[in-house]
């Protein structure tokens, strides 16, 4: 029995995405590109072949899903983690370090250690913003955003210093141990087990929000902090702090999964802006795990198609950011309507 307001919300969400696509089309037309050929290239790049779907769309959907879930857990508690790009990088640094250190271990040991390193790295990157928020009331929107730049510098330092390849010629790390890499799902395709891990996390988060006391408490802290403190007798500050730390940890896991599943090494600019695209993903998914899964899939396809559009139709890949921008604006505007 779908609730009428929920149904309207779902309709609005679909409308927001279609509006984004319409804006992209309008942009292509105004900028003088061949609209038909551009959109065809976009489609081909995302869904045109088994290769496109399994080696591009779903590979890009995986970090977007993890980071979208990261944003969602903070957002449901009323915290806005704009620094996922930074926590992703911190998680990637920690995972690379661990992946290089666990050389002789079997995969059953090496993989969990690498993923755990990502979680810890992301959470540590969140400690300062949370401490500033709890102690001095500094909004996490600013502090997490600023730490993104610090993380970028930290990666540059790592790949030209402690983690630089043995050869010492390029700013990148050595490949991590084979045992520390996430296995591929299909022979010859880049898609890896990280996608299943991310889907599993989405299911776990959905159950946590709906059926666990603390998941409910997080939602309550976000939707009605006053009532949660007064009649719920819950420590709202601590709930929000915990949600933000979890958000950082999951974003760090995203970085670890990217290193372990795709790049197998640390580079500068490992993320092409996943941390920001994922905000659009989470908002389009209305901060619900199921919605985030669907939105991550759509944006993964968009990112994959953007590459093909640049290659085959000469449209700069950043053009798809028009879609992101419109979706974020539409969803934030829609939030004013929601109660």
């Amino acid at each position: 029995m779908p609730h009428p307001t929920r149904f309207r919300a779902a309709l609005y969400t679909v409308g927001a995405f279609l509006l984004g696509l319409a804006a992209l089309t309008a942009f292509l037309a105004i900028a003088g590109y061949d609209v038909g050929a551009s959109l065809a290239a976009l489609w081909q790049g995302a869904f045109g072949s088994r290769q496109a779907f399994l080696s591009a769309t779903l590979v890009r959907a995986t970090p977007l899903l993890l980071l979208g879930l990261a944003f969602a857990i903070g957002g449901r508690a009323g915290g806005f983690n704009i620094g996922m790009e930074g926590q992703f990088a911190a998680g990637a640094i920690a995972a690379t370090w661990m992946g290089l250190a666990v050389g002789g271990a079997p995969p059953a040991v090496a993989l969990p250690l690498v993923l755990a390193a990502g979680l810890v790295g992301g959470a540590l990157w969140m400690v300062v913003p949370v401490a500033l928020k709890v102690r001095f009331g500094v909004t996490e929107v600013i502090s997490t955003l600023l730490l993104n730049f610090v993380a970028e510098a930290a990666v540059s330092w790592a790949v030209s210093g402690p983690l630089q390849e043995a050869g010492g010629s390029y700013p990148q790390s050595d490949p991590i141990a084979v045992a520390a890499r996430l296995p591929r799902l299909f022979a010859g395709q880049r898609l890896h087990w990280g996608l299943l891990l991310a889907l599993l996390l989405a299911v776990a988060m959905a159950i946590f929000f709906r059926h666990h006391r603390l998941g409910f408490a997080l939602r309550a802290a976000g939707a009605g902090p006053g009532a949660t403190a007064i009649v719920g007798r819950m420590p709202v500050d601590r709930l929000v702090a915990a949600a933000l730390l979890a958000s950082g940890a999951i974003a760090g896991l995203g970085g670890a999964v990217e290193v372990s599943g795709v790049s197998h090494a640390l580079y500068q600019r490992l993320s092409p802006g996943y941390g920001f695209t994922a905000i659009a993903v989470a908002l389009l998914g209305r901060l619900r795990p199921g919605g985030v899964v669907m939105a991550a899939f759509l944006f993964g396809a968009l990112e994959a198609g953007a590459g093909a559009m640049q290659r085959d139709a000469g449209v700069p890949a950043v053009a798809v950011q028009v879609v992101q921008a419109v979706v974020i604006l539409a969803m934030v505007l829609g939030a004013r309507e929601r109660r």
């Binding site: 309550a220 009605g224 006053g226 949660t228 009649v231 109660r339």
Partner: peptide, 16 residues
């Protein structure tokens, strides 16, 4: 602001 969460259902407010 202190007794109920508007967006929550009655049963969710009971749990609150």
């Amino acid at each position: 602001t202190e007794a109920v969460v508007d967006a929550f259902t009655l049963e969710e407010n009971l749990l609150l």
